[in-house]
Amino acid sequence: MTSLLQDGENFDFSSSFTSHPITVLLIDDQPIIAEAIRRMLVTEEDIIFHYISDPTQTLKAAAELSPTVILQDLVMPDLDGLTLVRFLRAKDAITRDIPLIVLSSKEDPQIKAAAFAFGANDYLVKLPDKLEMIARIRYHSRAYINLLQRNEAYKTLQNYLGKLKIEQQKSEDLLLNILPKQIAERLKEGQSTIADSFPNVSVLFADIVGFSKLATRVSPTQLVGMMNEVFSAFDYLADYYQLEKIKTIGDAYMVVAGLPVERSDHADAIANIALDMQSSIETINKNSSETFRIRIGINSGPVVAGVIGKKKFLYDLWGDTVNTASRMESHGLPGRIHVTQFTYELLEDKYVFEPRGEIEVKGKGKMSTYFLIDRK
């Protein structure tokens, strides 16, 4: 037979185990057998040998020593060896996956078959040949160490993926806090410029009256805290009515109904949030040293909505409908909800209005407008 090794060439069996030593745990009631096996292994620098004579201490020893292979005698005075094999292979036992080589004084096919059926990995007649035993110890230990390394790598990978998922969710939440979900998905798919036409939406602008004077009376920290309380209340209402908050500009708040998902009740939804915004301001005033009042302007009609530019993405609206809604706010009165003729016509059957008559609107000329009072 031709040797696979060249003359004078030695194979380093331990090269694969530099990060995890081969550890043998022998369970045998005969100290003389243990000593014989110890002597066989003592010259192997990469193999650590441990021995216990009491099989009931196996789990404790395995927990302390972390063996890479277990050698177990099948004939012991106080315990049947096959019973111990079943015990070591129990579903919840810490020894379940550790390679198990059973030792027997005779070559018995029936005992071999039973040992393998109960979960043994190998079978040796004692005392085994030194070279064969060491080869089998290394073979089974290599497989077990590889399993441990794969499990550790999988655990590390799962831990990394878990952290990555958390970070991805944070990024996703941040993106969705800036852009509507549908728009965010389109940007992630590679669309660089998004512009969509919507024929029927309702736009609302709200502005805090006397904000500039308020800013001169309170500290910047107090001012930001007050604005946060007001706008957080508005954000809650926007979520409740499933509206799209567009932006805040200083003390102005802009929200729209009817996009990016179209809805037939856009005017009703924007009227409801306007009325509730007034109520929320009244609630805030009861618990504040300051008295807030807001002007609200509403208009309905077609708009173009989308995202443009390369930095600091903002989902925004364009068109005459938006400009007119802004004019309704700026030409309105404190504590009132000022709406256009078009919005009034969409809502007159369900809501109470007060006609304002014709007013001169900057950039628009004379317009008939109304104040929204309440729901019918």
Rank of each mutant, 00 (worst) to 15 (best):
S3I: 01
L4H: 10
Q6F: 03
F11S: 14
F13H: 11
F17K: 10
H20M: 11
T23S: 10
P31A: 14
P31R: 12
R39V: 14
M40D: 10
L41H: 00
V42H: 11
D46V: 09
L59P: 05
L65G: 06
T68E: 04
I70V: 07
Q72L: 13
K91E: 15
E107N: 15
K112C: 02
K112P: 01
F118G: 01
P128D: 05
R136T: 12
R138D: 04
A143S: 08
I145D: 07
L147G: 00
K155P: 05
Y160L: 10
G162P: 06
K163W: 00
Q169W: 00
L174D: 06
I178T: 13
L179V: 05
K181D: 10
G190D: 05
V203W: 04
F211C: 07
L214S: 06
T216N: 09
Q222A: 13
M227V: 07
N228V: 03
D235Q: 00
L237I: 06
A238Q: 10
K247S: 06
V255E: 04
G258T: 08
E262H: 10
R263E: 07
N272F: 04
E290N: 09
G297K: 05
G297W: 08
S300E: 09
G301R: 11
V303D: 02
A305R: 03
T321K: 09
M328G: 09
H331F: 08
G332W: 06
R336V: 04
I337P: 06
Q341V: 00
F342V: 12
L347G: 01
G357D: 08
E358K: 14
E360L: 13
E360W: 03
T369Y: 00
